[in-house]
Simulated assay, not measured.
Amino acid sequence: MPKVLTIEDDEVTAREIIAELEQHGIEVEWVDNGRDGLVKAVSGAYDAITLDRMLPGVDGLAIVTTMRQVGVETPVLMLSALSDIDERVRGLRAGGDDYMTKPFAPDEVAARVEVLLRRTRANSGPLTELRVSDLELNLMARNARRGARELELLPTEFRLLEFMMRNSGQVLTRMMIFEAVWGFHFDPGTNLIDVHIGRLRKKVDPPGTQPLIRTVRGSGYLLGDA
């Protein structure tokens, strides 16, 4: 069972996160201040960490920065009421792996944590190629194939396909895709993701092949065998 450390000083928020993660079969340990959180975080004893940006004692940026300085690579989902782009960039540069602004839906936190856990498992050894069914993505040569057919992908399409393949079988929300591929907050008024998914689908799933990219109505997209 994966084990997650939640560092959050607001009890209501913490209990919402814990309840949601436990429903996904994840064991959670909670601390409500930065000093204790730092001690536990640098132990490297967890599979992932949810980390509040603003904490009493030691703030979230100091915690993740210290973790990376001492060589602890546990993936970190940073949570913050600060929503400006500069703050998000600051958190990711400090060593955070993902960043969400408050308020948020607990199930979205669980989805982000599961992506971090899957990424950790996928990166447990040297990874040069991703495979889903007969779809192959070579991360060194930066090329893709579906069966015997080579796919001509633009740089953004390659990043989008890589993100989806690294998280195959996982429903990826538009917000998750937007932040992972484009690196800034999702604008619900744009159809950017739908356009790129449509273009990628034409290349990955041409007529006569088993579709691998699926739309999950009301949720997002999923890549995997039917």
Results as ranks from 00 to 15, higher is better:
43 S>E: 13
171 V>L: 02
132 V>A: 13
215 T>S: 10
206 P>Y: 10
40 K>E: 07
80 S>V: 06
56 P>H: 06
138 N>E: 06
72 V>C: 10
62 A>Q: 11
1 M>W: 03
155 P>H: 07
222 L>Y: 00
158 F>T: 15
131 R>F: 00
6 T>N: 12
155 P>V: 09
112 R>H: 04
58 V>E: 04
197 I>W: 06
151 L>W: 03
14 A>P: 04
201 R>I: 05
173 T>P: 07
80 S>G: 07
137 L>Y: 06
210 Q>S: 12
34 G>I: 13
178 F>S: 15
206 P>G: 11
98 D>C: 04
25 G>V: 02
108 E>A: 13
164 M>F: 08
43 S>K: 11
9 D>K: 14
28 V>T: 12
93 R>A: 01
79 L>P: 00
85 I>H: 05
108 E>N: 07
198 G>P: 08
34 G>Y: 04
107 D>E: 14
193 I>H: 05
85 I>D: 06
82 L>P: 00
199 R>H: 11
134 D>C: 09
108 E>C: 03
134 D>F: 11
148 A>K: 14
160 L>W: 06
99 Y>P: 04
148 A>Y: 11
148 A>H: 12
126 P>Q: 13
48 A>L: 02
150 E>D: 09
74 T>M: 04
225 D>L: 15
202 K>M: 05
13 T>R: 02
29 E>T: 13
99 Y>S: 08
183 G>N: 09
38 L>G: 02
47 D>M: 05
197 I>M: 14
51 L>K: 08
89 V>G: 00
82 L>I: 09
126 P>Y: 12
175 M>V: 08
123 N>E: 15
158 F>Y: 14
83 S>P: 00
186 F>Y: 15
178 F>K: 15
41 A>F: 03
123 N>M: 15
184 F>A: 10
83 S>F: 06
132 V>Q: 14
15 R>F: 02
29 E>P: 00
184 F>N: 14
19 A>N: 10
67 M>K: 03
119 R>A: 15
49 I>C: 05
86 D>N: 08
93 R>F: 00
109 V>T: 09
138 N>M: 04
76 V>D: 01
123 N>R: 15
3 K>C: 08
63 I>Y: 00
210 Q>L: 09
36 D>A: 12
219 S>D: 10
92 L>Y: 00
121 R>A: 14
110 A>M: 04
45 A>K: 13
209 T>C: 02
168 S>V: 09
117 L>Q: 11
215 T>A: 04
112 R>E: 02
103 P>V: 12
154 L>A: 11
103 P>L: 11
3 K>T: 09
159 R>K: 15
55 L>V: 05
130 L>C: 03
150 E>C: 03
123 N>T: 14
134 D>T: 15
150 E>Q: 12
222 L>G: 01
124 S>M: 09
12 V>C: 02
205 D>S: 13
204 V>F: 06
113 V>Q: 01
209 T>L: 08
30 W>A: 12
219 S>E: 14
188 P>R: 07
88 R>S: 02
199 R>M: 09
69 Q>A: 07
15 R>Y: 02
147 G>Q: 02
18 I>K: 11
218 G>H: 05
158 F>I: 15
160 L>R: 03
200 L>I: 12
189 G>M: 09
167 N>T: 14
